[in-house]
Design a binder for these strands. Structure first.
Lengths: 160, 160
DNA sequence: CCGTTGCGTTAGTCCGACTAACGATGTACG
DNA sequence: CGTACATCGTTAGTCGGACTAACGCAACGG
């Protein structure tokens, strides 16, 4: 059987697959990402939070206290921005900043009890938001989606 | 069988799933998207092009000539930015801008022969870049990935 | 005819990612 | 020891992309 070419298109070397714009993974990725970001940002705003807050708090709870620079590495927030994020968190008494006695260049950041409580709230909020984000996918598909993204990310982190 | 909890974690209400930061679809999405964007942007730069150029040209070839506003809608480039993009394309003679006789508010944008040639080049460049972007995935997985993204996008476009 | 809408264009805002440089401190090594 | 270099937290500032506001003009609908 002969491979079908779009019949209504003059064969001037035009693409074999129509809709290339819509199918380009890079474009899909960026468009979905923008929407995802808006959803999350707006959702978190209603809880007086920002995504960086969640990242910092979650990192503190999961991997324990750390210096600002270390937190920065864990969360991929630039250390110059981390200052502001931690200011916001400290203002709300969600974290504690104290000088490291063993290295006076460092601050040790610790999550507070309020911080843990807040984090728990944010986790719920995010669960709901992700439910909305991934609404059209079945549980299995969601897993697959996360898996594919993870593999892509790992690959590109290694390569960089 | 009893549901396993992470054994090394005191049960202070901590999340049942560790690594939540890394597994959050929204975070994965944004991180992969950033990397994808960098890859594409840098790759296209080597061909003296930007992603908007590709979007505009591809839209012109696939759906035919159109006004700037229409192009804007097709490609999701803001009409205020479209001006600049079309300037860049017109400078390079990839596109022709002419007044619409039927509606003097409009410009009709047409892709030129050079434009088609350029587009073909960009398509090749992008094919290679996507190969790099999706390197860790098998062909079937790439399709699935695109499919999942498409469904997500469609859903959120409808809802908005 | 007039109010509304859509057009192309300019200018400018906003925000997030990222860089540069700082003083203070720590580390390695001759 | 001393001295070169690296790392820390912080401030300031750049850059680019997404988005808004407003404009003069033209078309449309009642």
């Amino acid at each position: 059987m002969i491979r079908a070419e779009a019949a209504d298109m003059p064969d001037d070397g035009a693409p074999k697959t129509p809709d290339r714009l819509r199918r380009r993974a890079s474009r899909l990725l960026s468009q979905v990402s923008v929407r995802s970001d808006r959803l999350i940002t707006e959702g978190l705003a209603q809880a007086d939070a920002r995504k960086w807050h969640y990242a910092a708090l979650a990192s503190l709870e999961e991997y324990g206290p750390g210096s600002q620079a270390e937190l920065s590495r864990r969360t991929d927030i630039y250390r110059s921005d981390m200052v502001g994020v931690l200011n916001e968190l400290a203002e709300r008494d969600l974290v504690e900043r104290m000088p490291d006695p063993d290295d006076r260049r460092r601050n040790i950041i610790t999550i507070s009890t309020r911080g843990r409580r807040h984090l728990r709230r944010l986790d719920k909020v995010l669960d709901d938001l992700h439910d909305e984000l991934l609404a059209p996918l079945s549980p299995a598909e969601r897993d697959q989606f996360v898996q594919l993204l993870t593999r892509l990310l790992d690959h590109h982190v290694r390569v960089s």
